[in-house]
Write a protein that binds this DNA or RNA. Structure first.
Length: 113
DNA sequence: AAGCTGACGAATG
DNA sequence: ACATTCGCCAGCT
């Protein structure tokens, strides 16, 4: 049950293309879990396989990095994003420019529910 | 079983 | 632009 949700969330996150970002709420919605932005954060925090998860492409809807500015984790995330061409300035990114806007057919094809 | 917490979000001043 | 407040809801205690 909860495992299924967790899988959907991780799967959805990994659909975010390089050079783009998505918000927690956006991921929750796409994963079929509306109003569950915090749940996305919860699962990300507790997940093990961070190695193969593109968690750094997930940020707040405001464009802010979810970690305290200057913290180690915020730094790592910023660097990962910068590596993909996403400009991070003062711990936040230009959503207008970098927010992932998934193609409807893309989603219907890749997520089956 | 009731209360607390939080890698959130939107509205408000 | 920034801080506060409030709503949200699964999972923990």
């Amino acid at each position: 049950m909860a495992e299924k949700q967790q899988y959907q969330i991780y799967h959805t996150i990994n659909l975010i293309p390089e050079g783009k970002v998505a918000s927690y709420g956006q991921i929750a919605d796409l994963a079929g879990l509306p109003r569950r932005a915090r749940l996305v954060g919860y699962y990300l925090k507790h997940c093990q396989a961070t190695e193969n998860l593109k968690w750094h492409r997930v940020i707040k809807s405001s464009g802010q990095i979810a970690f305290p500015p200057g913290s180690e984790r915020a730094k790592v995330q910023s660097e990962n994003l910068a590596m993909e061409g996403v400009v991070v300035k003062n711990g936040r990114v230009n959503m207008k420019k970098y927010q992932w806007t998934p193609d409807i057919t893309d989603i219907l094809y890749k997520l089956k529910f």
